[in-house]
């Protein structure tokens, strides 16, 4: 299968620090590709580089046949790439409704149906419709953040730790939502919760100290304690509920 997103040998500096020093991954259409790695491995920086906030030197990012390196963030978004950052991923001073509306270009004729779809996917948002996003609970915030990326129907979705700080109930809900989306879009998911990653991921890439150290199918990765121990340092228990 031809890759929708092809990332080759990214090297990204922040200030004088070399943060990424060889990140590669290849993402096929309609799959969920999980990025794993310890804290500080460079997962967030990889997504930020893909979105054009940071410029890789050298490095290649190809989306379909379009080279994204050196292109402004807003143009990258317009190619159909949605990004949910790890932090500050919504507009706290805008209402839930306004957060969603902002993602839709004004010439979009399907505003209502798109928004209705998000409310079906995340019913919790319905009750908070006119409240400022800053007043929502942690779970509601993550759902809104995800919904306001999804509402514009991105072809590729970059999601950075959507389950961070959420109770198991909300982690499940986010997982369900992402899984449902596989048929419509393609997802690159940064996820520390290995249980969730294993459940919904098709492919996995592991980063360490700014390098890609492993890439492969999630099924074989999840089945092998050996691989997990080597790349994640995980101590798996009998039930496989590693953390």
């Amino acid at each position: 299968m031809k890759a929708l997103l092809e990332v080759e040998n990214l090297h990204t500096k922040i200030g004088q620090f070399s943060i990424l020093q060889g990140v590669s991954l290849s993402v096929c259409e309609h799959t969920i590709h999980v990025l794993l790695g310890r804290n500080g491995a460079g997962k967030t920086t990889t997504l930020r580089t893909m979105m054009g906030y940071l410029r890789p030197v050298p490095g290649i990012i190809r989306f379909e046949d379009q080279e994204l390196t050196g292109i402004a963030t807003f143009r990258i978004a317009r190619y159909g790439i949605g990004y949910m950052p790890e932090d500050h991923n919504l507009f706290a001073n805008l209402t839930v409704e306004e957060n969603l509306l902002l993602s839709l270009p004004k010439q979009d004729t399907h505003v209502r149906s798109q928004i209705a779809k998000m409310l079906d996917l995340f019913p919790d948002l319905r009750v908070a419709w006119r409240r400022p996003a800053g007043t929502l609970s942690g779970g509601q915030r993550q759902m809104l953040a995800l919904a306001s990326v999804l509402v514009s129907k991105p072809r590729l979705l970059l999601v950075d730790e959507p389950s961070k700080g959420l109770s198991p109930r909300f982690v499940e809900r986010i997982g369900d939502a992402l899984e449902q989306l596989r048929s419509e879009t393609t997802i690159v998911l940064v996820e520390q919760n290995f249980y969730l990653a294993k459940r919904i991921g098709d492919y996995v890439t592991v980063l360490d100290e700014g390098h890609t150290v492993y890439s492969g199918e999630m099924q074989s990765f999840a089945a092998s304690d050996e691989l997990q121990k080597r790349y994640l340092g995980l101590q798996t228990d009998k039930k496989g509920g590693a953390k």
Partner: peptide
């Protein structure tokens, strides 16, 4: 207005406005 919405959003979170496809 939409411009107003974008301004209010930009006051809160500039980089996220860019990620929404809007040239800040």
């Amino acid at each position: 207005t939409r411009v107003g919405l974008i301004i209010r959003a930009g006051v809160n979170n500039q980089s996220l406005v860019e990620a929404r496809g809007i040239p800040i």
